[in-house]
Design a protein around this nucleic acid. Structure first.
Length: 859
RNA sequence: GCGAAAGUGGCGGAACUGGUAGACGCGCUGGUUUUAGGUGCCAGUGGGGCGCUCCCCCGUGAGAGUUCGAGUCUCUCCUUUCGCACCA
């Protein structure tokens, strides 16, 4: 065996062996319990980035470990191939998005293969293939039939110069990214999926997901945002017509404190009141500027305009003025809120700004109410009682809400209502590179669904966008069609679907990639996914949409499962240093950390030796130019080193800081491992291990080998703390390095330790372990060897070290026989010299004994 | 603004159920092999004190609390990161 580690020879050889054996092609009839390990599919942006490498390494380690545990493993891969970047690349380079995307896929597939991932490539799926997205269209039509898809107007960002809808990402500081024009909000018709019909189930089922991180479940629950409250009507008369303004509130108990009502600028009543009132119209118009994101709406200065129009308080009949407020969201509740400045902080600030009356209607004991300074208890629901509320005085939150709701119901002015923050899913995108929405617009028949037998509506792949509008609308071939109902000339819908539609069910298609239905019986075998792994940034949207989509398919009889993902692992981001320079004009240029050298704490650009500014750590991204190209690393160190570093640098759920020195360390470890095996093998055949014939040092090494097997199995199999697993194997190898074998049996113990280390490292660094396993004299390929079991007999210890504390502070250590009883341990602890010093003759009040670990003497 | 997390040596991190804080790795220091650099190997490495193989004090973002015992639990605060529905 060549004692020098040469990954450039070992890795292609191992990969060829796996490919030749079709080792990772999953079969439904292979026997063993199935294990579906899924990683979030990549967007084919060009090259793999370190986030991908991290994600897929975690998945591959789990897959290979489960395979060694005897599971029938499926680990597929595909491409989230529709999306904005392909269109941007098309605009920049004039290359059609289809070609750009497929070229990227080819390159990235090669990279995934070079990293040695055990992927079943026969099941590969790209969401831009008509064979895939036809089922998006098919399910869309089924949902339309069932009323789960409907049309209504939605708000988008509008670039008035390019006459184009902009994604939030394309709005920079309130302006269009290409034109710099101030962005406006615009209402357009869109298709929506009725996810709110499943709100209750999606919320309740979170309790049945023990394999999901708590924080993801909490975020989803908050996103769904179930709140129980009261829908209240404020009657009014306008244009000789009686009507009611509805609001939703969770604080009906404060209804007697209402001093105004605020409505959204898009509210129909606001539109009506703006007629003939220049000031109101101007405010409504002003609310149209700026972006449409919730963060933007929530952080902007709260502004409003009085309308002079009054509605009636539903219980007292007193007039209440209607205001239009930029902070009222049309998309939530009724698009109108009641203003209770006494007990809502936002209303309080609004009332102070515009001099509106503030009325205290809830009191907390004797606490004084100061209408000039907000105090947190003003908005407390509990521990307070109503005051200044007439017949409702003296009630707690629940009593007041019940009483007021009952009176409102009797007056026909309200009812209790469960409200969700979750909104229906708008899936229409005014973009080219996406799945066409299968609708035909006919002047006579209106919106007509494309008949099932005409699916898929194929997206032309050769169009090049010029940045303004949707190129589909300019393609006669795509646009012009016959109305399926009347046969007359008609035009196709040019909107495409949100790419979240594509990613809501790709993992189902992997189970039956060649089926001539959406999925077939194989889906019942593989689903649900046993382990899903992906970025924390998907904690809400993608995962919630997938859970919704699964239920829709279930209710259409396509699936029998409720939840798509049994266990979820959310991986942290990969960070790197950010360096930049600011030009005189304020323009920022970012420099890749590879081009920067840090000398005496000052970062300088290697090219010119001049300083650059440090922007601290940030997620690797194109915009900050702080990415590391995995390919360079693979070329330089080999795939195993890259895999080892990403698994060792940080626990999977935390952020990972890039460190070139850390990669060097990983490479060093593999070289050392390789040399240790080579040196051991050079000593020739080892004798069979006889556990009863070992000396003390050999027995201790063997104990450590088996303790490590137990720990690593738990760390990789249950805890997913890969770093501590690797650390334990490093410790074992350090112990092997210190151990000086003097007999045949000593060599046998070393052989056992090295065998175990290679098996345990095989999921993480599979190529080198493939080679080392052969070198250690085994005929089977390491991927086909079962995971080792710890020998309980080897773990036994004769003597234990016990820590002794006095009053909780560490004062000594004692060695006791493993069989020693409580009294014996206690006596030995009290006898310890340093312990005696600290007890110092004071009476011992209490002795706490934690068996096998610790004694605490309380004096 | 709302929602969710995270703060431990010079650095990444460990400490799983409230029980030895700092495993493992990086970096650094000293020694050693080598013609030299690199590599490799050996030793040391939280801060401070001391009579220096002993032992003591301090120490897990800040402050308080519960407990025999708190990095871990509770409360308040600070900072950072992620998500906020058209980036994927």
């Amino acid at each position: 065996m060549d004692p020098i580690y040469k990954p450039e020879e070992i890795e292609p050889e191992a990969q060829a062996a796996w490919a030749g054996a079709r080792a990772f092609a999953a079969r439904e009839d292979a026997g063993g319990e199935k294990y579906y390990c899924l990683c979030m599919l990549p967007y084919p942006s060009g090259k793999l980035h370190m986030g991908h490498v991290r994600n897929y390494t975690i998945g591959d380690v789990i897959s290979r470990y489960q395979r060694m545990r005897g599971r029938n493993v499926l680990q597929p891969m595909g491409w989230d191939a529709f999306g904005l970047p392909a269109e941007n690349a098309a605009i920049a380079n004039g290359v059609p998005p289809g070609r750009w995307t497929r070229d990227n896929i080819d390159y990235m597939r090669k990279q995934l293969k070079a990293l040695g991932f055990g992927i079943d490539w026969s099941r590969e799926v790209a969401t831009c293939d008509p064979d895939y997205y036809r089922w998006n269209q098919w399910l869309f039509l089924k949902m339309l039939e069932k009323g789960l898809v409907y049309q209504k107007t939605g708000t988008v960002n509008w670039d008035p110069v390019d006459q184009t809808v902009l994604a939030n990402e394309q709005v920079i500081d309130g302006r269009g990214w290409r034109t710099g024009a101030p962005v406006e909000k615009r209402a357009i018709p869109m298709y929506y999926m009725r996810i709110t019909a499943y709100a209750d189930e999606l919320l309740a089922a979170l309790d049945d997901l023990p394999g999901w991180p708590e924080r993801v479940k909490t975020m989803q629950a908050n996103w769904i945002g179930k709140s129980e409250g009261v829908r209240i009507a404020f009657p009014y008369a306008l244009d000789n017509h009686d009507d009611k303004l509805w609001v939703f509130t969770t604080r009906a108990d404060t209804l007697m404190g209402v001093t105004f009502v605020a409505i959204a600028a898009e509210h129909p009543l606001a539109q009506r009141l703006a007629e003939g009132r220049a000031d109101i119209a101007a405010f409504v118009e002003k609310c149209r500027t700026g972006g449409a994101t919730e963060a933007e709406l929530a952080t902007q200065e709260k502004e409003g305009v009085p309308t002079g129009f009054h509605v009636a308080h539903p219980l007292t009949g007193e007039p209440v003025e209607v205001w239009i407020g930029n902070y009222v969201l049309m998309g939530y509740g009724e698009g109108a809120v009641m203003g209770v400045p006494g007990h809502d902080e936002r209303d309080f600030l609004f009332a102070h700004k515009y001099g509106l009356p503030i009325k205290q209607v809830v009191a907390a004991g004797d606490a004084a109410y100061d209408a000039d300074n907000w105090q947190p208890w003003y908005s407390d629901k509990y521990g307070v009682v109503t005051v200044n509320s007439g017949k409702y005085d003296g009630l707690n939150y629940q009593q007041a809400t019940d009483a007021i709701a009952a009176d409102l119901a009797a007056a026909g002015c309200g009812e209790k209502r469960v409200q969700y923050r979750l909104r229906d899913w708008g899936i229409s995108r005014q973009r080219y590179w996406g799945c066409p929405i299968p609708i035909i617009h006919c002047e006579r028949c209106g919106e007509v669904p494309v008949p099932e037998d005409e699916l898929p509506v194929v997206l032309p792949e050769d169009l090049v966008s010029d940045g303004s509008g949707n190129p589909l609308a300019k393609s006669d071939e795509f646009m012009h069609c016959e109305c399926p109902r009347c046969g007359g000339a008609a035009r196709r819908e040019t909107d495409t679907m949100d790419t979240f539609v594509d990613s809501s069910w790709y993992y189902m298609r992997y189970t039956s990639p060649d089926a001539d239905s959406m999925v077939d019986a194989r889906a019942h075998y593989w689903l649900p996914v046993d382990q899903y792994i992906g970025g924390i940034e998907h904690a809400i949207l993608h995962l919630l949409y997938s859970r919704f989509w699964t239920r829709v398919m279930r209710d259409l009889g396509l699936l029998t499962i409720d939840e798509p993902f049994t266990n979820l692992l959310t991986q942290g981001m990969v960070l790197n240093q950010i360096y930049f320079r600011r030009s005189d004009s304020g323009r920022i240029t970012y420099y890749n950390p590879a081009e920067v050298d840090v000398r005496d704490g000052q970062a300088v650009l290697i090219a010119d030796g001049e300083p650059v500014e440090s922007g601290g750590l940030g997620a690797m991204s194109k915009s900050k130019n702080n990415g590391v190209d995995p390919q360079t690393l693979i070329d330089r160190y080999g795939a195993d080193t890259v895999r080892l570093f990403t698994m060792f640098a940080a626990p999977p759920e935390q952020t990972l800081e890039w460190s070139e020195a850390g990669v060097e360390g990983a490479a060093r470890f593999l070289k050392r491992l390789y040399r240790m095996v080579a040196e051991h093998v050079a000593q020739g055949q080892t004798a069979a291990l006889l556990p009863d014939k070992l000396g003390t040092a050999a027995r201790e090494l063997r104990r450590q080998t088996h303790a490590t097997i137990a720990k690593v199995g738990d760390d990789i199999g249950r805890r997913y703390t890969f770093k501590t697993a690797i650390a334990a194997i490093m410790e074992l190898l350090n112990a092997v390095g210190r151990f000086e074998p003097k007999s045949e049996q000593d060599h046998a113990v070393v052989a056992e330790a090295l065998d175990a280390a290679v098996l345990m490292l095989a999921p993480i660094v599979p190529h080198v372990c493939h080679r080392l396993w052969q070198a250690l004299g085994h005929a089977d390929a390491v991927i086909d060897v079962p995971w080792p079991d710890a020998d309980a007999a080897a773990l036994k210890r004769d003597e234990l070290e016990i820590v002794v504390q006095v009053n909780g502070k560490l004062r000594g250590r004692i060695a006791v026989a493993a069989s020693a009883g409580r009294g014996e341990v206690e006596a030995a602890a009290l006898a310890e010299e340093n312990v005696q010093r600290f007890v110092g003759g004071k009476p011992v009040r209490k002795v706490i004994v934690v068996p096998g670990k610790l004694v605490n003497v309380v004096v």
